[in-house]
Simulated assay, not measured.
Amino acid sequence: MSDPVALRSRAEHLAAPFPPLLAGARHLAASVVLGSHGRRRPGQGDEFWQYRPAVQGDEARNIDWRRSGRSDAHFIRQMEWQAAQSVTLWVDPSASMRFASSSNIPEKGARAAELGLALSILLNQAGERVGLMGHDLPARTGEVQLMRMAEALDRAEPGGEYGAPEAREMPSRSRAVFVSDFLGDLGPARKALTEAADRGVSGVLIQVLDPQEEAFPFDGRTIFESMGGTIRYETLKARDLRDRYLERLAERKAELEHLCRTTGWQYSVHHTDHSASGILLWAWAALERVV
């Protein structure tokens, strides 16, 4: 029998390159059952999409004679376009994302990282190129790319109280995914989405919130302090702030939704006390809609 201590040491050394985040993301990705990944439009691919009536200019070799033989018209057999595309992710690494109101639910940043990586796994399985903003990881395919993304997300250091994406890291006419609480200044996010739209980049924006941030369950004397410690506010009547806070939060959501609608992006809110499978499935479907 091997020395148990030595065996454990070798096992830990073997497992070291595989961040726990990657294991969690793979488990999350496996919980979502998906079909083949297409572009829902005609083009090069292996999957049949639809028949269309032949028109003047179509070559005879493209006519499906078997289908045409069942009617008085000629039909062209179209395949679903399945060319690989680039999808660049931005997962907010800021201090604000380290918040969790309970030990029973994950930090916003942990959930955002797991969600982003799980989506990358699904995209990679579909033959898409995936990349990560802010970590010098342009879009590529393969398991090595996923490993690099997992390591980058796992080791990301907070970069200030609130984060913001950079449109310059997104290739033109590609797709992108932004995951953040979007509780800071919206100016940078608005600029990034506007610039992205100008370059033909479409995408998905997911706002991750803790349930306490949604409910504002505070009463009496309360000290509010930002995760980075640079913002602090004390009040003796927290309950009096609740209506104004909820109104501001609703305005923030409405502004994000409007921004996404005007730039051709998709928007959704995810709460960290909910299962991540639902928002992962939504994000996958939303990426199909923004092609």
Rank of each mutant, 00 (worst) to 15 (best):
K191D: 14
K191Y: 09
K191P: 00
L193K: 04
T194Q: 13
E195D: 14
E195I: 13
A196T: 05
A197C: 11
A197P: 06
D198G: 11
D198T: 12
R199I: 02
R199Y: 00
G200N: 08
V201D: 03
V201W: 03
V201Q: 11
S202E: 06
G203W: 01
G203M: 07
G203C: 08
V204D: 04
V204W: 04
I206D: 03
I206T: 11
Q207R: 13
V208C: 06
V208E: 01
V208D: 01
L209P: 04
D210P: 04
E214D: 14
E214P: 02
A215I: 07
A215L: 12
A215S: 14
F216P: 01
F216T: 09
F218L: 08
F218N: 06
G220H: 08
G220Q: 07
R221D: 14
T222V: 15
I223V: 15
F224E: 09
F224W: 07
F224V: 10
E225P: 07
E225D: 09
S226Y: 02
S226F: 02
S226P: 00
M227H: 05
G228E: 09
G228W: 03
G229M: 03
G229V: 05
T230Q: 15
I231A: 13
Y233C: 07
E234M: 09
E234S: 10
E234C: 08
T235D: 00
L236C: 04
K237S: 15
K237N: 14
A238V: 03
A238Q: 05
D240N: 10
D240I: 06
L241N: 07
L241D: 01
R242C: 01
R242L: 01
D243E: 13
D243S: 15
R244W: 13
R244E: 15
Y245F: 14
L246W: 04
E247P: 09
R248F: 06
R248H: 13
A250F: 04
A250W: 06
E251A: 15
R252G: 05
K253T: 10
K253V: 11
K253I: 11
A254P: 03
E255P: 04
E257I: 09
E257K: 09
E257F: 02
E257N: 10
H258Q: 14
H258Y: 02
R261D: 08
R261P: 00
R261T: 13
T263Y: 00
T263V: 01
T263W: 00
G264V: 03
G264R: 01
Y267K: 04
Y267R: 03
S268V: 10
S268W: 08
V269L: 03
H270A: 04
D273W: 00
D273L: 00
D273A: 05
D273H: 05
